[in-house]
Nucleic acid binder design. Structure first.
Length: 278
DNA sequence: AGTTAAACCTGGTTGC
DNA sequence: TGCAACCAGGTTTAAC
């Protein structure tokens, strides 16, 4: 489910409410992508700090109290079908509730039917295993250091289709399958165009489109295809105004031509062959 | 070295 | 209606 906007919506929902909370217990459900990597009971008594986001990962810092047995934090990923809820009175966990961080300010609960998500303890963001997982991530989309020039240079380094390069996240993080399709439509670029054949002006237009698409989705609370919700259980609304994603055989809103669906990297790509040029 | 396929797992939708 | 086939927001790991 979650691409950058959904993860950021989630971060904003838990950051202030959990700030300063003390962990009272941790409950584990079925295994996620990786093991937690520490004794869950060792987290009790630790204090939650400001929640950060890097790419589609969330970082929940935990500061040890008097017993400094285990300090560091939790690196969380929502995978394909995950969502976090912050619950004042948590009901009994359901079959897809695989992680609870019980605190003095509510229970942070991960629901993830497909279990591609992860919760991994790390001593620090720049220590293993968190550092390794974040190491391959490209620049944040709204980092001012990411410029049309540097973005274009990054695109020049790949021969793969531009859609694949966007999904890989080395040039810019955050655009998954929905927003990569939408940004390419907005920029008027064919998804199969070789990355290194994109001109400077078109790269600039694509970067602007990625930023605009992600920002718009953020405003709308993300996209809810089937099961994403924010920490209060609210759905996102971006999917209702997607121009191409999920609209195969429907007319393009700009030119009226049929929107096409192709498969790239085993993922669906939607585009308008008239509006998006090689 | 860069690119692509396979793998992880469950559930909803589609089509015969 | 039943059941198989296909589809789904991600990313690591393995293989060309």
């Amino acid at each position: 489910m979650p691409e950058l906007p959904e993860v950021e919506v989630t971060r904003r929902g838990i950051d202030l409410p959990l700030r300063g909370a003390q962990v009272t217990a941790v409950r584990l459900g079925k295994p996620l992508r990786w093991p937690l990597g520490c004794d869950p009971s060792a987290l009790a008594g630790q204090q939650v700090g400001p929640v950060l986001r890097r790419g589609k990962y969330l970082w929940v810092p935990l500061a040890a109290g008097s017993s400094a047995a285990c300090s560091g934090g939790l690196l969380m990923h929502l995978g394909m079908s995950g969502s976090l809820a912050l619950l004042a009175q948590p009901p009994a966990p359901g079959p897809h509730d695989h992680f609870d961080l019980v605190t003095t300010q509510g229970t942070l609960r991960l629901n993830d039917p497909r279990r591609f998500g992860a919760v991994v303890w790390s001593a620090a963001l720049d220590a293993a295993p968190a550092a390794g997982l974040l190491a391959r991530l490209g620049p944040e989309p709204f980092d001012p250091a990411l410029t049309p020039l540097s973005f274009h240079a990054a695109l020049q380094r790949h021969r793969a289709p531009i859609k694949s390069v966007l999904l890989a996240g080395g040039a810019v993080v955050g655009a998954g399958n929905i927003y990569a399709c939408e940004a390419l439509f907005q920029a008027g670029i064919h998804p199969a165009l070789r990355s290194d054949r994109i001109s400077r002006p078109r790269a600039e237009r694509l970067l602007a489109a990625v930023r605009a698409t992600l920002a718009r989705a953020l405003d709308l609370g993300g996209s809810t295809l089937r099961d994403f919700s924010d920490v209060h259980g609210m759905s996102g609304a971006f999917q209702t105004e997607a121009a191409v994603y999920g609209r195969a055989r429907q007319p393009c809103g700009r030119c009226g031509a049929d929107i096409r669906r192709i498969v790239q990297l085993q993922r669906s790509t939607y585009y308008c062959a008239h509006c998006q040029k090689r």
